[in-house]
Design a protein around this nucleic acid. Structure first.
Lengths: 242, 242
DNA sequence: GCGAAATTAATGTCAGACAATTAAGATGGT
DNA sequence: ACCATCTTAATTGTCTGACATTAATTTCGC
């Protein structure tokens, strides 16, 4: 692992990139201990603070973890699904909020991806997933629920649907799409009538899932997308007119 | 923004989290300048190196950028689509390689997501996207192409298909799924007959895209998935027997 | 007025020190 | 011989202070 001291890039960035490459290419494997900060400083011919900045960059991406004490040091971290979820959600949320992605675009993407899971979920979902979906539908019907709680339950419903496909990679990918929509969804106020329509569609979808009817799930999600888009359009137009 | 000096977590991690929250919640907006390192050090009552470690963590996630010079400093960065792509790809790739995700699972997820774009792409693709797909198909047929170059062309073909849907959020989500598969795909050796079958399916898909036939695209992708899974299964079984 | 040089404010880097933490080894009592 | 306790060594976490580098601004000479 070498760095170029004359490069315009920061030394800490170069060192971080060198170590990251070593991890991605498999030259450093999970749970392997990196040299101590002092040794790395000597290897790269930089000071310890510079090495530390590089290590913090990697820690921010969950690529390494550090441990203090006699047998401590920096270790290559196994990137767990929960860690990856969290990063995906942060990135997706910021991407949407900072780039003025329209509700329409984000919503279309979300439902397109969700339909991809629907058929698989109808075929494979466990009783647990179905029970979660039913429970969330029930919660959504309770009076006095805030809009925010309604949205949170909506997310839980959709996550159960996605997880029902039994494919962790799909669940991971969808986490970003579904969660990142939540700030946008929270801008909408749901009337009692809106909620009733959404709940009815959720019930259609849950029934199709229970019956193993993949096409029914797809149709239900398409209807739900249309409903959501219409709702958002009405809200945003009303706001613009005001 | 406050931190707890008695928390077991690193000070730099706490500071990074405090600033990250401020960005995510919109209290710091794009292109806004953060206080200088010396000022932050005073605010949080820590030393400058500690503040710097926190800033490097944020820089690693593309949340801030730094600039030297008189009017320099740390600025809230607009998370661009290319930046987000890159992070998604790194995360997805590592997630797959470090968690022993089976080829079957990753492949299923990828094609499920891709089918989600197929119908949209058939309806909306520009002439450019179609031309790219045709060009990649042509490249794939050239003799003397290495397996790696064949895979790279395959990725380019699929990205054009996804981009054809004209939804940047979809493209971003798919980037991770498609690119992260490449290391797994590179483990396969493609015989001339394998390539011919794949190219024929690519042509079917391109034709369906050109005709605006969404169902045809879906069917083509499903056939391609089956072909890819069968190919991988044969390769892995042969390797296990040896 | 204009161009070049000095100023200034900021990040980037370094050196050395001390504190905090943790595991392993040494020590001593039973 | 065994167990609890103390000591020690290794490592990360943090601080202080300094200098180097960069780039915009101001000042000065002409």
């Amino acid at each position: 692992m070498k760095i170029d001291p004359k490069s315009p890039a920061d030394l800490s960035a170069q060192i971080a990139a060198a170590i990251r490459d070593a991890i991605v290419e498999g030259r450093l494997i999970v749970d392997q201990r990196l040299p101590s900060e002092a040794e790395l400083a000597e290897q790269f011919d930089v000071s310890r603070p510079t090495v530390r900045e590089a290590l913090k960059r990697l820690a921010a991406q969950s690529l390494i973890r550090t441990q203090r004490g006699a047998t401590g040091g920096a270790f290559v971290n196994r990137l767990s699904f929960p860690d990856a979820y969290a990063q995906q959600i942060t990135t997706s949320t910021l991407l949407l909020s900072m780039n003025a992605v329209s509700f329409e675009t984000a919503c279309e993407a979300r439902y397109a991806l969700e339909r991809a899971c629907g058929a698989l979920s109808a075929a494979r979902r466990s009783a647990d997933h179905l029970a979660t979906m039913r429970a969330e539908i029930h919660r959504q019907g309770q009076p006095g629920l805030t809009d925010e709680a309604f949205c949170a339950s909506d997310v839980a419903f959709h996550r159960a649907l996605v997880d029902g496909a039994g494919n962790p990679v799909l669940s991971y990918q969808l986490a970003g799409a579904v969660e990142a929509m939540q700030p946008l969804m929270n801008m909408i106020t749901f009337t009692a009538r809106d909620r009733a329509r959404i709940i009815a569609l959720h019930e259609d979808i849950a029934n199709a899932i229970e019956a193993g009817d993949g096409d029914g799930v797809t149709a239900g999600l398409t209807a739900l997308e249309a409903e959501t888009q219409a709702l958002a359009k009405a809200v945003f137009e009303a706001r613009a007119a005001k």
